[in-house]
Design a protein around this nucleic acid. Structure first.
Length: 428
RNA sequence: GGAGAGGUGGCCGAGUGGCUUAAGGCGCACGCUUGGAAAGCGUGUUGGGGUUAACGCCUCACCGGGGUUCGAAUCCCCGUCUCUCCGCCA
């Protein structure tokens, strides 16, 4: 959510920022509501103050046996006007809040200009793709040849966009989660967490999924929501709190399933494990002081990159353009891994991680603040989140990059101890 | 799922309609005291919003939302969470 005081002081800047999000000027409408609301509040509070004074006076008069009827008659009038003003104030606040809640975060100035992913800015390419003496297969062919990746059975159980993994691939899921969590906790200081995957509406609103993106989510019959990412519960852990400045930064990591309705993705990535309704992911969340968030984004991205490097996968890092940056982010860096089996064996880069600095945007929605010990002023924290990494897409990358002509899959050294072997072979 | 008891400041805890400006304690900060420290004494110590050049003034908030009343932490209704017991269950 946005700071109404910023909009009051900089309406043109605000509209310019929203223009980068393809949103028509809104500052004038917002400020009209704001001005009217403050006018109502002033009048309301004047009347409340009068009511409080008179009520006290009535108490005193009655206590000393006097006649308070004149005073009570005065308050009788206020009893009509105060509720009316309260209702008007509530209406205006609601209108203002719903307006502000629906507007995306302001982008950093250096976010590149562009309509979609084709316009993202390439920051670096790391590693080099493996070369094959044969045409590499995609993960579907490889996984099914292993007899360990079963889309037909998943469709029987759950419909499209699900998968059943078995044998070594099932273990690989577990191994990857352990491998990633071990690095983040022991080398990078993230606090391992197991959060709920069902959350309340208020929690989804705190990180920005609601009220605008309901159609992307699964909702339960008792009015909870399945998380689309562990960013939601992890970040909301600091909602409604004031964190001592000395406790920052907070760094949390969690391995959770993620659920996405993929309502707007009909026909996209229908083959294989690239885009599923359910997938698992190791997520990183940082809660930091304002002045630290830019550096924290670089740090977080480096943590995600470390995983890819240890897995000996090549990748590239991009800064997303305005058209491709998500609702809550002020800046996003994507990591795309090389998948040699895609594009009919030509290979292509696909997103495997997305690291975002949300600045104070989510913190303001969830009232997450910090304070320097001994000072009175509080400040909204900055929140960041990143995948490190998406497990399913990581598995795809390992299969497609490690494939051998005989159909077996060579695993990177880092996983040997987690897998108890150095390669994947077809199930007996 | 059933029955009961609860939710008050950073923490503990008093408070069954006005004397609450939320008692008292703990913790914390500052000061006095001291050679220094402890103890003791004193002062201060929630958050959001409106208004103001500023000091300040006002308002809201005692889990959340409604209601009764001139006036609600206190009474009523709904919701929510916690605890105890029962049932069920991994």
């Amino acid at each position: 959510m946005h700071d109404i005081r910023f909009i009051r002081d900089n309406p043109e800047l605000f509209d310019a920022a929203m223009a980068r999000r393809n949103i028509d000027p809104v500052a004038q409408d917002i400020l009209a509501l704001d001005t009217e609301r403050r006018h109502i509040q002033t009048e309301l509070q004047t009347q409340q103050s009068r009511r409080n004074d008179v009520s006290k006076e009535i108490g005193k008069v009655k206590g000393s046996g006097g006649n308070a009827e004149a005073l009570m008659a005065e308050v009788a009038d206020l009893k009509h006007s105060i509720p009316a003003l309260e209702a008007e104030d509530a209406r205006l606040e609601q209108a203002l809040t719903s307006h502000l809640m629906g507007l995306p975060n302001i982008l950093e100035d250096f976010v590149p200009e562009g309509a979609d992913e084709a316009d993202n800015e390439l920051l670096r390419v790391v590693g080099s793709p493996p070369s094959f003496s044969f045409t590499p297969l995609d993960h579907v062919a490889l996984g099914e040849a292993l007899g360990q990746m079963d889309f037909a059975s998943a469709a029987k159980l759950s419909g499209a966009r699900f998968v059943v993994l078995q044998g070594q691939l099932a273990r690989l899921e577990r191994a990857l989660a352990s491998f990633m969590l071990d690095i983040h906790t022991t080398e990078f200081g993230y606090h391992e967490t197991v959060p709920p995957v069902l959350v309340r509406t208020q929690t989804m609103t705190g990180t920005g999924q609601l009220p605008k993106f309901e159609e992307d989510l699964f909702r339960t019959t008792d009015d909870r929501w399945l998380i689309p990412t562990a960013e939601v519960p992890l970040t909301n852990l600091v909602a409604d709190s004031i964190i001592p400045r000395t406790d920052l930064p907070l760094r949390m990591t969690a391995y959770t399933p993620c659920f996405r309705a993929e309502a707007g993705s009909a026909g996209r990535d229908t083959r294989g494990m690239i885009r599923q309704h359910q997938f698992s992911k190791v997520e990183l969340v940082s809660v930091v002081a304002a002045e630290e968030s830019d550096a924290e984004l670089d740090r977080m991205t480096a943590c995600a990159e470390t995983i890819l490097q240890r897995l000996e996968l090549s990748y590239r890092v991009l800064r997303l353009c305005n058209g491709d940056t998500g609702f809550s982010a002020q800046q996003t860096l994507d990591i795309e891994v090389w998948l040699p089996g895609q594009n009919d064996g030509e290979g292509m880069f696909r997103e495997i991680s997305s690291c975002s600095n949300c600045g104070p945007f989510q913190a303001r929605r969830m009232k997450a603040r910090t304070r320097v010990e001994g000072e009175k002023e509080t400040a909204f924290v900055h929140t960041l989140n990143g995948s490190a990494l998406a497990i399913g897409r990581c598995m795809i990358a390992l299969l497609e990059n490690g494939q051998q002509e005989d159909g077996s899959i060579m695993l990177p050294k880092a996983l040997h101890s987690y897998m108890g072997t150095d390669k994947l072979v077809p199930s007996a």
